[in-house]
Design a protein around this nucleic acid. Structure first.
Lengths: 209, 209
DNA sequence: TATGCTACCTACCAAACGGTCGGTAACAAT
DNA sequence: ATTGTTACCGACCGTTTGGTAGGTAGCATA
């Protein structure tokens, strides 16, 4: 008797993994609604009925890809970040790592932010809850910085979402064959996020003699 | 004999305007692919065939809405900005104004950034060209600031897109019934963009006596 | 009264969609 | 030799889709 599982984790190898990876790539390119189940099947060289051997519905396929994206975010960004004691260093790490996942372009994380509307309400709740947890962690780091007096007077909500906006937007424009590599772009984003675009006017130091 | 026109500008009043406005709102909520022509017709209280009296196809409807979004951006942001001589003031104006159009949430500008995949190649080229012109103008302003020595050492491409990312992302999270009004959010974004999140460590001024 | 235009409607169509059914070839274990 | 499982396939189904053909009621102009 099979154990009832919360959800099927995406298999990391074998044919099933190939199915999910291919699906993620096509959905990333064409969008969820514009991608038919047959499109995915065709890309795999099988028929639609054959594909249904691996998936339990188009919706669940999307949901699983999104869960995988969140897994990735937690595994590669949030969890390692929790080991970093210094808040500023932690923030730098998170931005860099998150940005690189986006520019790496394997799809799951981008689909995660782009296609929320296609989920059922129940699926949406789960995904939203996990996304909020990630956001809260980011915000907590900013709050810690604030406590250290290292932050400008900024609203934490606006700050958190602005960070995510910069990072997530990378998927819309960054191309790996452009002039900057992933690390360079990530570094630039860190700089802009932390120090902004303009530099303060040089302080005029007047010393009364 | 009717004059052959480049494109039909969106009418600003009358029933036709109502049609386009309603369509934009629904597409904004549900996404282009998930919105059927009947959905739009239903919202207008007419049948699909009746709606086709006003539009010439689902694609052209989307295209027209996007053109309207670009018109809006040029009319309310780019053109007034060109009257501002000081580059820093111009940048502030552009960010503020653009952000407020997004938070105002009437749809066209957001659809513009969200649904590019649904266009035909020919439509896509036109829209992309106009978007690039806007981007180039933004970048030119940054370049001017750079010449004045008012900019950190940042890559202009990354900087421009990071700005757009922060601004466009607003549509994903900003709610008018939240704690901050549109102007406050716009100001916050300006601050983060120009000065960043962290403030420089206080300079220790040592004066040799 | 006739003509023409606007603003729709009912009824329909071919295509595409997500999904299912009953099969089958290949291989492994008993 | 039988049984079970995996990995598919061809054919089909009901529904929805974007889009069209042809009509009509109401109003304006001549």
């Amino acid at each position: 008797m099979p154990v009832k599982r919360e959800r099927d984790p995406l298999p990391s190898d074998g044919r099933a993994a190939e199915v999910y990876l291919t699906a993620a790539q096509i959905i990333l390119e064409k969008g969820y609604d514009a991608t038919s189940v047959s499109d995915i099947a065709k890309a795999l060289g099988i028929t639609k009925a054959g594909l249904y051997h691996y998936i339990h519905g188009k919706n669940e396929l999307l949901f699983n890809i999104m869960e995988y994206g969140l897994d990735q975010l937690e595994r590669e960004v949030a969890q390692p970040a929790k080991q970093i004691a210094d808040a500023e260093a932690r923030l730098r790490f998170m931005i860099t790592k998150h940005a690189r996942i986006v520019t790496r372009g394997h799809g799951a994380v981008t689909i995660l932010v782009d296609e929320t509307r296609a989920l059922t309400p129940a699926q949406n709740r789960k995904i939203t809850r996990r996304k909020r947890a990630y956001l809260d962690f980011l915000r907590a780091t900013l709050d810690e910085l604030k406590g250290d007096g290292k932050l400008h007077k900024v609203d934490l909500t606006v700050a958190s979402f602005s960070l995510l906006g910069m990072i997530n937007w990378l998927s819309r424009w960054y191309r790996a064959d452009g002039p900057l590599n992933e690390q360079q772009v990530a570094d630039q984003v860190v700089n802009i996020a932390l120090h902004g675009l303009t530099r303060p006017a040089p302080r005029r130091i007047r010393v009364a003699l």
